[in-house]
Structure formats: C-alpha cells, structure tokens
Design a protein around this nucleic acid. Structure first.
Length: 198
DNA sequence: TGCCCGATTAACT
DNA sequence: GTTAATCGGGCAA
C-alpha cells in the first residue's frame, strides 16, 4: 500500500455500482490488518438477473437493501464465504463482489489460514480471499469504513480491463467483471478485452 | 415438503 | 477434463 492513501468512506460507495467497481481495482482492503491490493471485482445491480437482490429482499440478502458502505457476506455453494461491498443509495440493492487480492499485509496469517505456500493462491478467488482474511458470515453488515475493515483508495495509475463475469448462467454476456491488467493474482485471466483507462 | 441449482474450490482421472 | 463437498432460495407439487 502506498503511503498517504485516502480512506474510502460511505460517500465513495453511494454511487452507481458500475462506477464504483472499476475504481476499486487498485484499492487496498485490510481486515484486522490482513489483506492487500484489490485486483478483481464484479458489479451486481438489482436489475441484473444474476444479482441476489433481483427477486427482492430475503433474510440472506437484507444487507444489500440497506445503505451503502457495508459488507454483504454470503455463503457460496454451501461451503465458501464471499465478500461484497454494498453500493448506491439505500434500497438500490446493488453490490460489488470482491474476487481477488494481491496479498501485501499479513502474509503469515494468510498462509496459515489457506494451508498452502503459494501466494498466488491466497486470495485469487472470492472464497479464497475470505478464507485468507478470516471473513465469515459474522462480518455480514459490518461498516467498511470502521475497524476491523480498512479501505484505501489507489494512489497509482491502473490499467483496468473488463470482461464477462465468472460462473454465471444469467446475464453471462454483461462485461461487469473488472481487473487489473496483467496481474498474476486474478482468479482467471482476462482474454483480449476492452481496456478502460483509469 | 422436495428437488434442483448456484456470484466456488480442490482433488481427482 | 470431472466430481464431491454442502446449504439457501426458488419453484413445483
């Protein structure tokens, strides 16, 4: 993490999920001091058939219908945990799925939790990064601008690439997956994709 | 109530 | 390439 990085607050998240998602690439996410640089995210809007909020509120997705700047954590395939940042004004029920980090802080803790030595496999996937950081359903509804979470804006220029989201059957054609071009820590590589200049 | 599928991962063949 | 692990939601009956 670069020094003098600006902390991300509520107002950062209270905008269109399609604006917030690409801006999160290059930001730093820490949980209890463990984490790294966000290199891959996906955007989910309430009007998107692939979003958990598409069919309305349930017990699981209730946090998505609340105010922006909070963590929505859900169980995936009955096994893993996945971390999202709630965006847009309250009730819009839109969120950004955090899919991969480049580990920078707390490598020892991540190695222990993941049970493997290869740093590229610590946080390269939504389930993997939650395991590495120790995030579970207990963090559902936590504020992102308060401990144990810390979020810092990127301080450098990043080449962001966009492509189809991973593992979907609905709205699989929408290019709402964003990643840092050339990163070794992506959950999957991007093919020749549109490049956004940021 | 029962059945199928899913914003996944690791360990197989 | 395939498959098991395992649970909440959606929908049919």
């Amino acid at each position: 993490m670069a020094p003098m990085a600006k902390r991300l607050t509520r107002s950062f998240f209270g905008r269109s999920v399609h604006d917030v998602a690409p801006e999160l690439v290059g930001a730093t996410l820490l949980f209890n001091g463990v984490g790294g640089r966000i290199v891959e995210v996906e955007a989910y809007h309430q009007t998107d058939p692939a979003a958990h909020s598409f069919r309305g509120p349930t017990e699981r997705n209730a946090i998505m219908f609340g105010p922006p700047g909070y963590a929505y954590v859900y169980r995936s395939y009955g096994i893993h945990w996945c971390l999202n940042f709630v965006c847009e004004p309250k009730g819009s029920a839109s969120a950004v799925l955090i899919r991969a980090l480049e580990p920078t802080q707390g490598l020892r803790a991540m190695r222990r939790r993941r049970g493997m030595a290869d740093e590229r496999l610590f946080c390269s996937g939504p389930g993997r990064l939650c395991q590495a950081l120790g995030i579970t359903h207990k963090q559902n509804g936590f504020a992102l601008d308060e401990p144990p979470f810390e979020l810092f804006a990127r301080t450098d220029t990043v080449e962001v690439v966009a492509g189809p989201r991973i593992g979907l059957t609905k709205a699989a054609d929408k290019p709402w997956r964003y990643g840092q071009k050339g990163s070794r820590f992506l959950s999957k590589p991007f093919t020749a994709s549109a490049k956004l200049e940021v």
